[in-house]
Design a protein around this nucleic acid. Structure first.
Length: 470
DNA sequence: ATGTTC
């Protein structure tokens, strides 16, 4: 039993000892409280151990407290691979490349919009296309789409969807260097073309929230957050384009893994050396998808601001934008040495101790499940030392989509939201049970673990008033 | 997550 291999290191750290008979090159580490332990799937533990077998992995195969089973790599997983000896893997990034969270802060207070929440939610719903296969209703040329892939949010800002200040408050300034459009398939481009500026489906959402509580006055003030303030949170990614890019390279790497004689405990871990033609090709296509996602969130921000401006004659500044499905080449201090590594964060958020955008710790945005709180945190030194500057990304599923549909109804879920004074707008009621709070871990517990571990610091708690689901 | 099975 894989469960029996898990050894407690301290209150919140569990270790899977390095076992060379299993091909593990490093130990695994899972960060959990006792309360979250009951949600831990044996398959997810196995996935943490499997990742530890991949070539060039450095220090540990990690899983955050919102961990659950994913495609090959666990969701909530963090793994760093040596830049010259290591691999890159599409399964370590996920299908929704640069799925991420963005927070806009308005000048409005909760009281000012309480009576208008229905109208505001409806207006935003009409303005930001949502749902499976939703289209962004933008018209642009193929040449422009190439610019989206190459320049991300910078393209969007240059095209009039925001201002230069937005780029400053975006992870990687909303633009991933090294994208190469020639490594993006015609099908990925075709799927991406009509969808730019749309939310998507599943756990993607747009929420009208208010700042319920501030925990760190200094950081909150630097990030421009104050009690009672109305914020807009967006959770979306690279839509069909990123999904297709992931699919394309998974297929290619099934064969390429053999070419490079990489032994895999699970075919879903398909990977290639980072420093190879195939590795560079995937990385440049992944960068293109990441840029698409940043442009996508930038365009949706423009539409949100348009509604806020029309309804309330006021603006909404960008607090921050984080990626939580991405691989990045970063320098980390490992065993007293500076080392270049490809950090794969799949359902995990960068949490650097310092960020150029505010000159203090990096803002971290963690959405809860539908109808529950979301959090603004910030990065820490401890994260740099123990998690390659990473933290959790959300609540994490506990119930399969199928199980949720079996056990819950859209009426029941909508009613319990109504009792919490939360308005819901969606074009697909049948998908509502899948996103119910009961289908997810308790976000407050997940946050308390990353806070207690010290891998991020809680700055503010946000509570939803209106929810738009794809 | 996703024109939900290449």
């Amino acid at each position: 039993m894989i469960n029996e291999r898990l050894v407690r290191k301290d209150d919140y750290t569990w270790e899977i000892a390095k076992d060379e008979t299993l091909g593990m090159r490093v130990p695994g580490r899972i960060f959990l409280s006792d309360a979250l332990m009951r949600f831990l799937e044996p398959a997810a533990i196995q996935q943490v151990a499997n990742v530890a077998t991949l070539p060039g992995i450095v220090k540990w195969s990690l899983a955050m407290p919102d961990v659950h089973t994913g495609y090959g790599f666990p969701i909530g997983g963090v793994a760093a691979f040596d830049a010259t000896e290591g691999i890159v893997s599409p399964g370590g990034v996920g299908f929704d490349i640069n799925c991420g969270t963005r927070l806009l802060a308005t000048t409005l207070t909760k009281e000012e919009i309480e009576q208008e929440i229905q109208t505001l939610t409806t207006k935003l719903y009409e303005s930001v296309p949502a749902g499976l296969g939703s289209k962004g209703s933008l018209r642009f040329s193929e040449k422009e789409l190439d610019q989206v892939f190459l320049r991300g949010a910078k393209w969007a800002v240059d095209s009039g969807y925001g201002d230069a200040g937005d780029l400053k408050h975006c992870e990687s300034n909303g633009c991933f260097d090294g994208a190469d459009v020639s490594n993006v398939s015609p099908l990925a481009k075709k799927r991406g073309m009509p969808q730019l500026g749309s939310l998507g489906s599943g756990n993607h959402f747009l929420e009208i929230q208010f700042v319920d509580q501030i925990y760190e006055e200094r950081e909150a003030s630097v990030f421009g957050l104050r009690p009672g303030q109305v914020c807009i949170m967006l959770h979306s990614g690279s839509r069909g384009a990123g999904h297709q890019i992931c699919t394309d390279y998974l297929k290619l790497f099934q064969k390429a893994s053999q070419k490079y004689a990489i032994r895999l405990p699970d075919r879903q871990l398909a990977c290639v050396p980072a420093d190879s033609r195939d590795g560079r090709s995937y990385f440049s296509a992944m960068a293109a998808a990441a840029n698409y996602a940043w442009a996508n969130r930038q365009i949706m921000s423009y539409r949100v601001r348009d509604v806020i401006e029309r309804e309330f004659s006021t603006g909404a500044g960008l607090v921050y934008d984080v990626a939580h499905n991405i691989a990045k080449l970063e320098t980390h201090h490992i065993d007293g040495e500076r080392k270049e590594v490809y950090v794969h964060r799949k359902g995990a958020t960068r949490a650097f101790e310092k960020d150029e955008s505010y000159g203090v710790a990096q803002p971290v945005l963690i959405p809860g499940s539908m109808g529950t709180a979301s959090y603004v945190l910030c990065g820490t030194t401890k994260a740099m030392q123990t998690t390659f500057g990473s933290t959790c990304h959300g609540a994490g599923r506990v119930m399969s989509r199928k199980a949720a549909k079996r056990q819950l109804t859209w009426k029941g879920v909508t009613e319990s939201l109504r009792q919490k004074h939360i308005t819901l707008k969606t074009d697909d009621l049948s998908a509502v049970p899948e996103e119910a709070p009961e289908a997810y871990k308790p976000i407050d517990e997940v946050i308390s673990v990353v806070s207690a571990l010290g891998i991020s610091k809680v700055v503010a708690r946000l509570v939803p008033m209106g929810v738009i689901k794809g």
